[in-house]
């Protein structure tokens, strides 16, 4: 961690999201107060009819911020992405627009990532794909993960899928990745020994300290998170959750994170993309 503060701005290290004391209290409360003991609940998948975006659990003010493109701060990143789309950063003078045309042609792309990268035979996420074009096709230096430029471009491409249903990649390699992601989702990890499913399947809608536990759908990424005071990726969100249960977070770009992303997309299949969303 670069800064000692808990809420350091622009600090993408996964400082715990859940204030630890509050978190412990929340767990204890859950044990004492719930009709079924918290830890004994078996992770059951959320019925289709009950699936909902984290948007639904937000306060009206935060929802209003997301609904209006002129008050959603993530749109500042989108604007920056629009500029980058036309830029020629490399020796070969190629811009994104030169090969891809207007960015609206990217409609539906973000709704089906991660997907199979035929060249490597492995799943690749949207960020990885953007990097590929940047280094291999533009002959420019890669944008670091979670850099402003990369998030700006991912937000711009994500926005083109807004309102479209999530369509998980159908190929067998991506499906195998999603299956590994599902196993990870159900595996207890960290000093707190909790799985993703215990929070997001079994206890969504309940309070964890001051936060409401959402179902954990990837519908809005990259998001503008009020706590981050900036835009962040789904992988940053997942690393925060891992740090929250005191597990060692996988590094950005790790296969395990891509597998988790694949599973989250499968779990959210058919839900509507809301990129760029606002979250508390």
């Amino acid at each position: 961690m670069m800064f000692p503060e808990r809420h350091s701005r622009n600090n993408i290290e996964p400082s715990s999201d859940f204030y630890l004391p509050a978190f412990f209290i929340a767990v204890l409360f859950a044990i004492n107060l719930s009709p079924v003991p918290f830890m004994a609940v078996r992770a059951a998948e959320i019925p289709l009819a009950q699936r909902q975006s984290g948007f639904e659990l937000m306060q009206a003010e935060t929802q209003a911020m997301q609904r209006n493109d002129l008050s959603n701060p993530a749109m500042l990143w989108v604007r920056e992405g629009e500029k980058l789309w036309d830029e020629k950063p490399g020796e070969n003078g190629q811009s994104c627009v030169a090969c891809h045309g207007v960015v609206t042609g990217m409609a539906g792309v973000a709704a089906s990532y991660p997907t199979l990268d035929t060249a490597s035979g492995r799943p690749i996420d949207l960020t990885g794909r953007i990097q590929q074009c940047r280094t291999d096709r533009q002959r420019a230096s890669a944008w670091p993960r979670e850099s402003r430029a990369l998030l700006a471009m991912a937000s711009l491409i994500g926005l083109q899928s807004r309102g479209m249903p999530i369509m998980p990649a159908p190929d067998p390699i991506s499906k195998a990745g999603a299956a590994r992601g599902k196993a990870l989702f159900n595996q207890r990890v960290g000093q707190l020994n909790l799985s993703c499913a215990q929070c997001h399947d079994d206890n969504w809608g309940r309070k964890l300290g001051s936060a409401t536990i959402p179902q954990g759908h990837p519908t809005g990424y990259p998001i503008y998170r009020l706590e981050w005071q900036g835009v962040g990726s789904l992988q940053r969100r997942l690393r925060n959750c891992l740090a929250g249960v005191r597990a060692e977070a996988f590094p950005f770009g790790a296969d395990a994170l891509i597998d988790l992303e694949l599973f989250l997309m499968e779990r959210a299949a058919g839900m509507t993309v809301e990129t760029p969303a606002v979250r508390p």
Partner: peptide
């Protein structure tokens, strides 16, 4: 990065 959004 200088960029602003105006809602008017």
């Amino acid at each position: 990065m200088a960029s602003a959004l105006i809602d008017a």
